[in-house]
Design a protein around this nucleic acid. Structure first.
Lengths: 327, 327
DNA sequence: GTGAAAGCGCTAACAA
DNA sequence: TTGTTAGCGCTTTCAC
């Protein structure tokens, strides 16, 4: 590896001057600068991030923690994070935690010992104490899922309102027995969306029936199928389904078809997230779209501002009900 | 941040001894070790990766370059890489390149200045010269897509054979006008799969018709739809389609349905990769499954061996034709 | 078995 | 405008 010393020697200057040229902080004479730049070119020199970081105790690396990269919901968010970070001179490290506290700990430690400058957390809080403790000393931003009580900044949407509007839409098109496929309610978004679901029911004087609410514990197609299978086995079948995620909705759709039922006539269905698959199903899926790309951009710039020591404010962004063929 | 000095002071020993305890390289007296460990516990000390790396010039970080995280094909591979790396004490950095040479350059530089120890490349070769040059000085392994001429180690499958078998299957079920939705043939896998497609045709004395081969340049649903639309507009419609990726096949499927045609009776269809969504379509998609998880595991351990200075050998793994409803 | 000290590559304070 | 030098946190030789 070629170091700053070798460049300095070749250019006939001190290492300080080379450093100045690289970082152009203070003035360097045009002629000297040229000589240094030539030496850099000739030697193909790349400053060692390691040396620089150790000295500056910053790494210009951001950690992005997601439970699973296989969930397409995160894709657009990550694009937003990536674009913003790169623009600001940061790189991102995508970390898949599988909601595993051990893996999370590994990544948290990278921040503790300055291997990374901050974290964007998209993981639902696994170990509240750990997160809050880390947040007291290190820049953290929560994206999408967050902790209402803790005072860590976040970017998200109004999940209760979104769910309320989705269910209201189902009621408006004449559905009465609206089932709800929800995630584990340890997640904030799950609790909030359930609140929205119930709010719509109350507003139209429909009783909330426990048996129509099904909580899954894995966000994949199979869980959606499984949930729908159970719901269809009930004596009084639902005439609509609100699923907390497109992935679940698509699984449910598959199961409805397998039972020879028609969507939306027999059963209408709404998903959540507007993943790209949701437009490929037959019929296309009504869903709630979140401004994922923007969420990504905002959480990245929030984090970067935090790293710079600025105060930042949490935000709730707009969502949109996208009505397609399944309702 | 608590440093090794503070631990040393608290334990009443030198920093060297603390280092010895942490890395247990040379012998430390039981009693001393206990005192040091206690100090580490009390202070909640975490060794700085930065300091250690600078000294050892290693980072225990592996870069994984993928064109796009939104392609589900990579998900399982990454799981394999991750599991293996963590077992071996390495962390991975997922890097999305968008096939953008500039981004690629950023990540390559991380390796050049020892911020990362090696790279698993899943990106189709963008800039051959750069990759080959990097490979002369740094550990690189190619996964899935590789460079046949260069001598960089790789893990992949026999794409020609897989395509040959898929097309042969279509011929065997009585299809004659088999279209081929392929990627840009700058990619090795695209060229190889085309070779397999043509080989099957030759074997059954069917003429390869140029008009039935459609090259897309983006691996997404819309491209599949677009390709199918074009193919369906031809005077003599195809009676089968072999798509180089499930994502394309699903887009094509959507378009076939939109034209009121039946799958597989009017048009049979085969995809590639066995992504989880391929089992959610109606009808379910016949596809070629690759041992993605294993590919990930193997490429990770190959890279780690390379980092350790061992010789490694390239491998081609087994694939499997998964016959489902669409054929 | 343990400690002192050099040095990994870099930046920034201070001097010149 | 440029050079000298300390020091970021760590590991490892060399002495003891």
């Amino acid at each position: 590896m070629v170091t700053i010393q070798e460049v300095a020697k070749r250019a006939g200057v001190s290492v300080a001057t080379v450093s100045r040229v690289i970082n152009n902080r203070s003035k360097v004479k045009e002629k000297t600068r040229n000589r240094v730049e030539q030496a850099i070119d000739e030697l193909n020199y790349e400053p060692s991030v390691l040396g620089r970081n150790l000295r500056n105790s910053e790494s210009r690396l951001l950690l992005v923690l997601i439970p699973s990269i296989s969930n397409p919901f995160y894709t657009e968010i990550i694009n937003g994070i990536e674009d913003t970070s790169i623009k600001e001179g940061y790189n991102i490290l995508l970390c898949e935690t599988d909601s595993n506290p051990k893996r999370e700990a590994i990544y948290f430690n990278l921040v503790r010992n300055r291997m990374a400058d901050g974290i964007i957390l998209m993981d639902p809080t696994i170990n509240r104490k750990n997160v809050l403790e880390l947040a007291t000393n290190h820049p953290i931003v929560q994206c999408s899922e967050f902790d209402k009580e803790g005072n860590i900044s976040y970017v998200s949407i109004d999940n209760e309102l979104a769910a309320y509007q989705a269910v209201k839409h189902l009621i408006k098109i004449g559905k009465k027995r609206i089932a709800f496929i929800n995630s584990d309610e340890k997640f904030l978004y799950a609790r909030e969306r359930r609140a929205g679901y119930e709010k719509a029911f109350r507003e139209f004087n429909i009783a909330v029936e426990k048996k129509r609410i099904y909580n899954i514990n894995q966000l994949n197609f199979e869980s959606g199928q499984q949930a729908m299978r159970t719901l269809l086995n009930q004596e009084e079948k639902p005439d609509a389904v609100f699923a907390v995620s497109d992935v679940l909705a698509i699984g449910a759709l598959k199961e409805i078809h397998a039972n020879g039922l028609k969507v939306p006539d027999d059963i209408a269905i709404i998903g959540f997230d507007k993943i790209s698959f949701s437009n490929m199903t037959h019929p296309t899926l009504t869903t709630v779209s979140q401004p994922m790309y923007r969420m990504g951009c905002i959480s990245a710039s929030m984090l970067i501002n935090k790293i710079k020591g600025e105060e930042v404010e949490s935000m709730l962004l707009e969502h949109e009900l996208v009505i397609r063929e399944s309702t």
